[in-house]
Design a protein around this nucleic acid. Structure first.
Lengths: 218, 218
DNA sequence: TGGCGCATTAAACCAAAGTACAATAGTCCT
DNA sequence: AGGACTATTGTACTTTGGTTTAATGCGCCA
């Protein structure tokens, strides 16, 4: 497997060691990749996120802050970038913590060009996957936001397998009203079949709580 | 969070150091957990797998064989046990490799009782989750095996969102035949609604290849 | 060879889903 | 006040879906 980084990919380096920043910068630039370097997480946060695929190469030991904490905060704030952690003075517990927190790789300094490029390749692949899924999720969530409250109720019950008549009973509506909301919901969600509608609901985790039949896990 | 290991859990220790085996054995037994110790992976493989929740505490450095390779071979052969790796002479690359391969935790010797118990608690939780999912998958696969070839074809097309009439066209069958197979498939899969039927198909990854509409990833 | 399961189809029928047109009423914004 | 959106229901009609009963043909197994 060779290094075949996607075009328009951006490598972000956060390390307070200017030497590391410079050497990584020249390494990636020699492969026609965009590179942004920062000496501190706050600098990175103040900047715009790249639009295309990207990955973050992060030093765990930073003067001002802790790289692992920064990693955790990124994860919590929904910023989803594959992270390669590098360290000059790492140990096993730190490595475990970083990997558990979802790092794609964890490299001890000094590392070879080959090692960081290999890690970068995997990270960009992960970025691609994550972005695709995130994009799909965003699209579907935007559609879902356009549903009215009633339509959402009906959608949840339809996805739970209830018949229109049963839904009408639960919501104390007439059968026709349910049909209207159901059709409207399917149209807004751009579902062309009930099967697709169910899968979309599943993807969004929408199901009526009172109906437990099958599949809490997934 | 306290240590609340499930009852009937089994801890498997594979380490060629008799001292480690003895101390882990007494530690876990003091908590009323079942323990099985082995000095070598082959010994463990020759024994029966525990029926309840369990986890494997594995030393990476074994006289006869490599713990990481053993870990990989377990994963490939479908044996699904949460693994806690322990090591006397570990380094970062080894830790990364172990974690990437799915280890629940990675501890450097010497470790405290608290550390190994904490790891064990997480491992048993993972075991519980994995076993539940595996059991559900097995049940559903067994049901699926009872379907005839035709019923499977029809199921795939139903799950893809096609109407009975369209399915009949594709398979060159009459409408009634499709309805019969569809009803039979739903009965055998124990699906009480189309929504449930679709979710079961999704769970099994069943979809007609010629129908790409929505959701390759998930 | 007779029974069993599978596959196939038909006729007839009922239930459910979907659609079209029409109407009323409330809210929110301009 | 008028317009837009949502919610609601009704009637009427068409299309699908689902079930029952019945029949035919095939391959397999005891």
């Amino acid at each position: 497997m060779q290094f075949a980084p996607e075009r328009d990919a951006t490598i972000i380096v956060v390390d307070d060691d200017p030497g590391i920043r410079a050497s990584l910068d020249s390494l990636f630039r020699s492969l026609d990749l965009r590179v942004k370097t920062y000496s501190d997480p706050s600098e990175f946060l103040a900047s715009d996120l790249p639009s295309g695929d990207c990955c973050l190469i992060l030093d765990v030991r930073l003067k001002a802050s802790d790289g692992l904490e920064f990693q955790a905060s990124l994860g919590q704030s929904g910023i989803n970038i594959p992270i390669i952690i590098i360290t000059g003075h790492g140990d096993i517990p730190m490595t475990v913590k970083g990997m558990k927190a979802g790092a794609v790789d964890f490299l001890a300094k000094p590392f070879t060009d080959e090692a960081i490029l290999h890690a970068m390749g995997n990270a960009l692949k992960a970025s691609r996957r994550m972005r695709q899924i995130a994009q799909e999720r965003t699209e579907i969530e935007q559609r879902y936001e356009r549903l009215s409250a009633r339509e959402r109720e009906v959608m949840a019950l339809v996805a739970s397998g209830l018949m229109n008549k049963q839904i009408a009973g639960r919501l104390e509506l007439s059968l026709i009203t349910v049909k209207i909301h159901r059709a409207s919901a399917m149209k807004k969600m751009e579902a062309e079949s009930l099967a697709e509608f169910v899968r979309i609901a599943e993807f969004l985790g929408i199901r009526d709580e009172s109906i437990t039949r099958y599949h809490k896990n997934g």
